[in-house]
Design a binder for these strands. Structure first.
Lengths: 174, 174
DNA sequence: ATAAATAAGACTAAATCAGTCTTGTTTAGA
DNA sequence: TCTAAACAAGACTGATTTAGTCTTATTTAT
């Protein structure tokens, strides 16, 4: 029930990208994976990989060659968390049985659980859809889900582990 | 962003248990992991493991010995999907930074993303909380998220792969 | 007191995920 | 026109997590 690290990184990366170029002022920055990695602290190779995926998914537009780079394909307001997560992790489904065409079910037609997954799934998707990239780039705070201050490669150790006293702004008080 | 197989199995298992004993008529059935495995098609060793975890989490009550078995610790109406998922997967948090006390964040205090995870997280938890075990045991249909009709062990091959034409009751039309 | 039945926990194997490296493509400059 | 530098894209390897199997410990009826 957790987001993969890759998806989390992707959100951070795109959030940074949104702050930078924002489809409007595209010629401004000549943004690329390296720059994003520097700013966010995401390891460069991982950033490159994610940029690839996000480009393939149509969230970034890339230009090759010596003057190349990337830019957001759409304005930040029209990109949601759901878009990003789905681009990195694939179809957004809680259980494999909620994926279309998956009929390898062992239970013989007496399953009482399946109908409910659809509801849960829609709710979760909605929650992710309601947060746009634009809103992500506004309020500054402290976060990133790197598990540890891992060894940076020679590509740059622009990020350092910070321990702030800001924590748990409200989780699972259920 | 998918539930682990184990968590999915756990839901199916408890749903079956709810149909059976239901804390009220507890003496009725002498339910145990083996019986649940038979009825649901979940592999026996896996069922045993899950029963252990669910018992440790306080959702099942177990009795050892020759006449032993398990039963729901609380009435089905007061057990939610969130309870089950949390029992199997641990704290319900979308990103590791939403877990209390996790401060291994690489980004140096300018993170604009974190504040939003709390909202998303609460929404998701609510969605899982809104579905009770009681409601799961009512409407029959077809489902289970086993990926394949895998080779059953000698313990029993009570389950067989069924392919119905029932699909996608509403996912990610978003 | 013994043996059978059961839950609990340790262990092994598989799958997935994260991260690194190499290759291919493009364009500026000589 | 050729060469070299910059960049994205994709293949590969290692590590972590997850799923599944097996063994051990505990309890009670006989």
């Amino acid at each position: 029930m957790r987001l993969s690290n890759l998806a989390d990184y992707a959100v951070v990366l795109m959030s940074a990208a949104a702050r930078h170029c924002g489809a409007a002022r595209l010629a401004e920055g000549r943004l690329n994976a390296t720059k994003l990695a520097q700013e966010t602290g995401v390891p460069l190779p991982t950033a490159k990989k994610l940029v690839s995926r996000l480009t393939a998914a149509g969230l970034f537009e890339s230009t090759r060659g010596i003057g190349g780079g990337i830019r957001l394909a759409r304005p930040p307001a029209s990109i949601s968390l759901a878009d990003i997560v789905e681009a990195v992790e694939g179809p957004l489904a809680i259980t494999s049985c909620t994926i279309d065409g998956n009929h390898d079910c062992l239970l013989e037609s007496g399953c009482t659980v399946k109908p409910h997954w659809g509801v849960v799934n829609r709710t979760i998707r909605q929650a992710l859809d309601d947060v746009s990239l634009a809103s992500l780039s506004d309020i500054p705070s402290t976060h990133m889900s790197h598990r540890s201050s891992r060894t940076q490669t020679r590509d740059g150790d622009h990020a350092r582990s910070v321990s702030t006293s800001l924590d748990t702004n409200g989780i699972m008080a259920g």
